[in-house]
Design a protein around this nucleic acid. Sequence first.
RNA 1: GCCCCCGUAGCUCAAUGGACAGAGCGCCUGACUUCGAAUCAGUAGGUUGCGCGUUCGAGUCGCGCCGGGGGCACCA
Length: 601
Amino acid sequence: MFDREQQAIESKIRAYCADNDIPLADLKWTPIPFSGEWGTSTSFFQTAANEARSGKKVNVPQRAQELAESVKAGLGEIEGISRIEAVKGYLNLYFSTAEFAQRVVATVLEEKADFGRGRPKSERVMVEYAQPNTHHSFHIGHYRNAILGEVLSRLVEFAGFETIRASYPGDLGLGVITVLWIYDKFYRGQEPEGIHERGQWLLKLYVEATDLLTEKENETPEEKAQREAYDAERRELYRRWDAGDPEVRELWRVTREWSLDELRDILRMLDIDIDVWFFESEVDESAKEIVDELIAKGIADDERPEGAVIVKIDEKLGLKKEKYRTNVLLRSDGTTLYLTKDLALAKIKFEKYGVDRSIYVVDVRQSLHLQQTFAILKLWGFPQAEKCYHLGYGFVSLPEGAMSARRGRVVLFKDVADEAVRRVLAEIAQKNPDLPEAQRADVARAVGLGALAYAMLSVDNNKDIVFDLDEALGFEGRTGPYIQNAHVRAASILRKSKTESLEVEPATFDYELTSHEIQLIELLSRFPAAVEQAADEYRPLVMATYAYNLASAFHSFYHAVPVLQAERENIRDARLQLVAAAKQTLANALALLGITAPEVM
RNA sequence: GCCCCCGUAGCUCAAUGGACAGAGCGCCUGACUUCGAAUCAGUAGGUUGCGCGUUCGAGUCGCGCCGGGGGCACCA
């Protein structure tokens, strides 16, 4: 936010050093830590170290301090800077309090929902996420994927990139056929009422079918024969599906739609709007076509009929050590694999959608697979391969162990969301009984889902999560509701102020600010940088941490600093604007996190 | 065997190579006739798994161990 000042200072430092024959190293700027004032800071260690390396005998920390002092003396007075100090090799420049505060608050109130938005970038980004397999049900592992992908999309979009949200559900394979088989055999014609009931029922069928098809210990000859007969039926069904049998295809299409109905409803709840849907079944044909191209280009080796079509990735890249290994593009029977389809899909993304950066939000266990995909894209000659990025995330397990769809040991997202809403309603009844009945449902949903979202986002994506319901639905401490509550408190003050003229004139902060105000304003000023960092590093956690820190600063301010009862009118006006700016920035940060910012709770 | 990720307070987790490693939970103490206590203020808690190295400076980078998790050609 103070780039212009920083650049002016930087050029002054450069000029000074040039005049005094000091070979200045690159200047890096950071906020000054543990200060009760605002400012920016740079150090001279690198420059001193360079001198030492060039042969001069210098003690680096001492020399850095000398340089800092000397530069300080050479800078003189600078507009907007109240004070300069040289300490421990650092040069600290403190901003003029009133001016800084006024500018930060005015900027937020002017830009409103756009505060923090980055300048438009030239590249187009596609984020692929929210893609459970069909014929299953949406569990909390899928939820982690969906919320991570959505927040990442919001971040890169807000940072200025044109952003396309894509989902790529797996709608074929043995798992899907297994569900079709048991439905066709035992449940033909049945269909539960309700989108979620129907979607979840498919998962129950899958569990039941898997049980029937899994070899048991000590099974009798009759049981064995039965199981093998079932399995033969399933294989036959797969064959008919593959051959395009109209009856099987229709059954597949209808049941697939049940899953997608459920998925679409959950995405609606989560305020996720997917732009492009790719289905595995739709890229199957084009996947077969690209194999020939890759063989012709000498990237893939055709070892049929004895073997498969493979890519010796390490060898083609000229790597000595095994890293990407070898992978199969076509089975010896000519059918495609996951990798083949991913290559075909990438081609579509690059050529049809003009994607420059392609981000895959996928379970970390598929890391090797995606690295292989990117490596082959590179061999294939796509320059975008360099900007393919796998946002892997640790899997979500339960205190009793890994989730397992086969064994039916899963925690469904819908169940958790419903429980979250129930708990918030109970909380409201206790803490805010005056809240009108009509608003309770909306607030409960906002707060319940906010708690869940923050529980997922406040852990770095590469860490596994052991999902504990009580922990995920916590409303106190470092949680979504804590941040939402800061927003609510700000809204409450503004409601009570009854001022219409909040934004007509910038307030002047020409009184002695408390440390709480200083801390709060400092955090407001850092929001644009937090957005940029989170988007650059593809890390939702950065924004989650920022939002909490901002809320924490607001809560402290709220408790310690009177606003409506401020001792003077001008102070009251200034603080009201500060509250409005904090509310706006909290709302912007929460929006990026996919969390609703309620007015009351 | 090879590759990837992780190891920080009792627990769960933070920390662009930079100044004094920070939060939450839990424990203990205090603050609601005061803008909403889903809050705030405070106490206690650390050899950042171990060792060597690079650097003016290492939780962060490199190498080697130890411990945990994941992955390694016709599954997705």
